[in-house]
Simulated scan of single mutants.
Amino acid sequence: MVTWEDERLGVVGPFPVRSSRWHDVGPVAAELETLVGVPVLVLRLVSVEGGADGQGGHVTYHAAALRRPAVRLADSAAVLAEDALRADWATAAGLRSALGWAEAALRSAGRPVTGPVEQVKTWNLSGLYRVPTADGPAWLKTTPPFGACEAEVIGLFGSADATLVPAVLAADSAARRVLLDHVPGEDCWGVPEDSMLTAVERLVGAQAALAAQGAGRAAGTTLPDRTPKVLAGRLRELLAGEAVRGLSAAELAQVERLADQLPAIVDELAGCGLPETVLHGDFHPGNWRSDGHGTVIVDFSDSCLGHPAFDGLRPRAFLSEQRWARVREIWTAAWAERLPGSDPGRALELAEPLMHVGYAVRYQEFLDNIELSERIYHEGDPAAELREAIRSA
């Protein structure tokens, strides 16, 4: 469904695209541009028929043309509804504002834009755009108010290890916009080389340093508190809301029992001797980027204050058992070296149900703060995490 300025032009498609993931809209924009003959940007997902887990099926998007096309588009009676929770970058005006800010910021930084911006991803949690400059690409990322301020978190981790994070070229923290320098290499989905695993030990080093400094708790920081004691209370809140929708009566009873057990688990976890610190919040290999020599961590929008075992456990679901055993070994050895007398291995065991409670809380925050048509990305996720919490407990 294509609009230009305030005018509805019509519909194009259906047509196949290279990526089956709904938020990978770069191929959608590229194909649509070929079909209508003018530059376009995808604003948001409107509806999905079929598909599951964020991919496949027949997806309808709303796209904005940057110039009026010469071709006539097919009529459609479908409605483009307004939604008070719509992300700023999911509107034509909001996206123009973000791109204009990026162009001005890069010009001020001595890296003027040299070509058209390439749209890579858009959904309720972020928009990602590759911006060409004479000194190589920069990346514009837009995030919602309920996400962490990435520039702030990158600054915290960068103060402990500047090579662990991407370079920030400019930031508008109030509008949740950040311009990042390009990080060479590839995201580490399924990468076999052990070189990428340096991210694990280096994250531990940075988190230990930040904990020693009291970073993240200083006045002026905006990080949400998802420490173990706080999460124990948040589980009670989830039990009273829609997060438990879809759980059976038996599962709900198990979650109730887990809520009763959590205070004791929290106390035992504290006894393992690891400090609460700044977390990445989604520390899986897809957010590690490696060129075979060094590894940089990206995507800090889920960062928070919490127990480091939550980040330590996160890679497990994305790795083979053999690779997970290696990651676990690196993580526990790194903490044991920095804190002699601590028990990081036991901390991983105790923290697992709390970690899943934390993700249930986070997914419910997504659902509470995104527009109706985009809830399909996260429906059922809070209940799924609560099932994992009772399984691991």
Rank of each mutant, 00 (worst) to 15 (best):
L305G: 14
G294Q: 15
G294I: 07
D311H: 08
E321V: 14
L319K: 06
D302I: 00
Q322M: 11
A309G: 11
L319E: 13
W324R: 05
R316D: 08
A317V: 15
Q322N: 13
R323I: 02
R314Q: 11
G294E: 14
S303D: 01
L305K: 09
S320C: 08
A309K: 05
D311R: 05
L319S: 05
G294T: 12
L305T: 09
V296Y: 02
L305S: 14
S301V: 13
G312A: 10
D291S: 05
A317P: 04
G306V: 05
S290I: 02
I297D: 00
L313G: 06
F310W: 07
F310R: 03
D299W: 02
R323C: 05
D299V: 03
S320Q: 03
R323N: 04
E321G: 10
G312Y: 05
T295D: 08
R323D: 12
S320P: 04
T295Q: 11
F300I: 00
W324M: 04
V298R: 01
C304A: 15
G292W: 14
P308Y: 12
E321T: 14
W324Y: 14
W324D: 03
L319Y: 03
G306W: 02
S301W: 01
S303I: 01
R316M: 12
T295I: 05
P315E: 07
L319G: 06
W324A: 03
D311N: 09
F310S: 11
